[in-house]
Simulated scan of single mutants.
Amino acid sequence: MSKINKRAIGQTDLKLSPLGLGCWQFSNGTGIVGRYWATMEDSTVKEIIQTSLDGGINWFDTAEVYGKGQSEETLAAMLDELNISPEDAHIATKWWPLFRSSSSITNTIGTRQEKLNHRPIDLYQVHQPHSFSSVEKEMDQMVKLVEEKKINYVGVSNFSEVAMRKAHARLQEYGLNLTSNQVRYSLLDRRIEKNGVLDAAKELGISLIAYSPLEQGILSGKFHNDPSLVQKSGMRKYLGRFKPNGLAKSYPLILKLEELAKKYEVSASQIALNWIISYHGETVFAIPGASKPHHAEENIGAMNFELSRDELEEISRISWEIVEKSPKK
């Protein structure tokens, strides 16, 4: 396995690669959420996972709602087939709160364990902030799972600054800390830098895990360079950023990413991913997905070079100019 500099997530001893692999696409086309992705061959999934591991990625992010557990099941099965130890492949998964109360966290953990073939759950996250219970009661249930050694660390996802602070404060009553908050973050979506989430995370020692770090492929530049691809992009073609006006507004950022990509002999996507995991020091991790092996290779390559501070700031400046005038969706 490649040597990638690992970093501690949150205030834990768990050292993870700056990039993990997002596993939503392993949903096997199951369920409302899972149908977003086409069914993938097991051989392709296995190659993606092996490529990621060989390149130094040592953790995988999945969720109960991804194909009603199909993503978890597929991930665990492929890791087992590849004979990968839990020490070399850490797993983060998520409990789905909608229309449930906090007791579901403990009541359903057995199913999560079964889906993951009893591999350790290193990070267990509340997937989003809407349930029938308070944040505090959700954290109470998470603490039970830690005490019973059914999970190792507690995280949340899509939590506001206020909700994140509540979760952290409740855990501290038990001598624990909130490890992470998984949020949407990219060069075209920088809300966490204005709504207090990023500042609070830095203050409290909470890691942020960025999902959609490439904004569904826009930051690769492929849709700018060949607009005909938009019509083949499924539901994305209806989003403002994929329409001609949206692409025109983000084009200056693509030009900068491509300029730096040429300098470092990488791709625009790799520059964008490197910015995400570098600009704020070690606070932000990211979980790009991969539906083909070469996507996994791209992810790995984003961790193998270092942008200068001036380059990071220049990307940031152009990004902010785009963000302020771009469609939000």
Rank of each mutant, 00 (worst) to 15 (best):
R170N: 04
R190D: 02
E47F: 01
P129V: 04
R7M: 06
K329C: 03
G110L: 05
S278E: 05
Y185H: 05
N225R: 15
L53D: 05
E321M: 10
S278K: 15
L21Y: 09
L257Y: 05
V183R: 11
Q113E: 15
A76N: 03
E193H: 13
G22E: 04
L75H: 09
D61C: 06
I277Y: 08
G31T: 04
A76R: 02
V156K: 07
C23E: 00
A296K: 01
Q11L: 15
N58R: 03
L21E: 08
K263R: 13
T93C: 08
S291R: 14
E138F: 03
M142Y: 08
T283P: 10
G246L: 01
L14Q: 13
N152S: 11
E148Q: 15
S102Q: 10
R119K: 14
G55R: 06
K115Q: 13
E147N: 14
G110I: 08
S2M: 11
A272N: 09
A201C: 03
E306T: 15
N299V: 13
L307W: 07
E173R: 11
L171Q: 00
I254Q: 11
D310Y: 06
L145Y: 04
I9R: 00
I49D: 04
I49L: 15
T44I: 15
S308L: 14
I287C: 10
K3R: 10
E203Q: 13
E215S: 14
P86M: 07
G196P: 06
S291C: 07
E161F: 02
E193G: 10
M139K: 03
P129A: 03
K94L: 02
I206C: 08
D88I: 05
S207F: 04
T106V: 15
S102R: 12
D199F: 00
A76V: 05
K94N: 08
K232Q: 15
P97E: 06
E64N: 14
I84V: 15
N58T: 09
V65K: 06
Y279I: 13
C23R: 07
S291L: 00
N245A: 08
S326P: 01
Q11H: 05
S308D: 02
K237E: 12
L208Y: 12
I300T: 12
S52P: 00
G289F: 10
K150R: 15
W96L: 14
T44H: 01
L171V: 07
S157D: 08
S134P: 01
R236T: 00
N117G: 04
S103W: 06
Q50G: 02
M235S: 11
S319C: 13
T108F: 12
